[in-house]
């Protein structure tokens, strides 16, 4: 495969109209939904994270379609997909790549690792050793890899979809909160409902729909979508609302560690994408509210009392949503 080292590539892509954006997003969603039935909200959020240049943590029990979702998304977009199966003996260089000596050129040649793709599927990330996890997470944030003093720019679009199995506890290295913070959103796919599962049986009886999946757009288009989404208008009132939401997670009595400023950034970035996917050029508090649980829940740490009381972080965030006023108008309401 080909890659370029720095300087970084900046594609001055012309932005899309909101209708084009919406149509493209709908096309991708329809495509992916063909593979994963009855999960359109989750798929929508996953696509939003992708266009928001974020990374996704899929945390769910085995067999609900985490890998299927990642693969379907990648195929629909027609970009390169790399899969890393994390195991305890995986080394950082397996992820980033390694320089090996080429006897013919009498020089070290960089052999890129699995990270050099558009869509990286990191399966069971919590099985890898902290050292390897750290290598991946550094790439996620920096969008570049430094090996032997050389910095290599990663591709765009670039998205890591890491899966994590919450059931198995033995032999795993759970992600520390600092690293969880780098994932824009954590999604749980959940079991399909009755009809979706029946439909799945019908479809999968004959062929694997994933194989038949045709790409509906390319990486170039995604880059344009990213640019378009960035231009979505954020009203001051909405920014204030987002900041107050994040602030509420920090002051909430049930929370030991609140959400970071990075969470605020990513929340609003995803909200812009959702707005654009809805055909709007301005974001709404509704977008923020849809994203609050996926974006915030994995970043906050409830107090031990709260956890023992049966409340998880998602329910705390939902509670905060119910109490933070959307508009701050002193003296009225």
């Amino acid at each position: 495969m080909t890659f370029e080292s720095s300087p970084p590539q900046q594609v001055p892509a012309p932005p899309l109209s909101s209708q084009e954006f919406k149509a493209t997003a709908e096309a991708i969603l329809t495509n992916v939904e063909w593979v994963i039935e009855g999960k359109s909200p989750t798929i929508r959020l996953a696509l939003a994270v992708m266009i928001a240049e974020g990374h996704l943590l899929l945390e769910d029990v085995p067999g609900v379609g985490k890998t299927q979702l990642a693969k379907a998304l990648a195929r629909s977009v027609d970009c390169s997909v790399r899969r890393i199966q994390f195991t305890p003996d995986l080394l950082p260089s397996d992820v980033t790549g390694v320089s090996i000596f080429d006897p013919e050129k009498r020089d070290f040649v960089f052999k890129p690792g699995a990270i050099f793709g558009n869509l990286i599927l990191g399966d069971e990330i919590n099985r890898a050793s902290p050292k390897t996890q750290a290598a991946l997470l550094e790439c996620m944030e920096e969008r570049q890899v430094t090996v032997d003093g050389n910095t290599y720019r990663l591709r765009s679009p670039f998205m890591v979809i890491a899966t994590q199995n919450p059931v198995e506890m033995e032999g795993t290295y759970p992600l520390p909160e600092a690293q969880r913070d780098r994932f824009t959103a954590r999604l749980a796919i959940g079991y399909p409902d009755l009809n979706a599962e029946l439909a799945m049986l019908d479809h999968r009886g004959e062929f694997n729909p994933l194989e038949a999946l045709k790409p509906v757009c390319d990486g170039e288009m995604i880059v344009r979508m990213i640019a378009t989404a960035r231009a979505v208008h954020l009203a001051p009132e909405l920014k204030r609302y987002a900041v107050e939401l994040i602030g509420a997670t920090r002051t909430n009595a049930q929370v030991r560690l609140g959400a970071s400023p990075r969470a605020t950034l990513q929340l609003l970035r995803c909200a812009k994408v959702l707005a654009a996917m809805d055909g709007r050029d301005f974001a709404l508090p509704d977008d923020v509210q849809q994203l609050a649980v996926p974006v915030l829940a994995h970043r906050i740490i409830p107090t031990t009392e709260t956890t023992m009381g049966g409340n998880d972080s998602a329910s705390i965030v939902a509670d905060i949503l119910r109490h933070v006023p959307v508009v701050s108008q002193p003296g009225r309401y």
Partner: peptide, 23 residues
């Protein structure tokens, strides 16, 4: 919108502050 909210309150369906205009 203020009037609509007040009407809702008058008629016993108050709209919480945490609701977005759409909700």
């Amino acid at each position: 919108w203020d009037e609509a909210r007040d009407l809702a309150r008058d008629y016993g369906a108050p709209l919480a502050d945490s609701l977005t205009p759409r909700q």
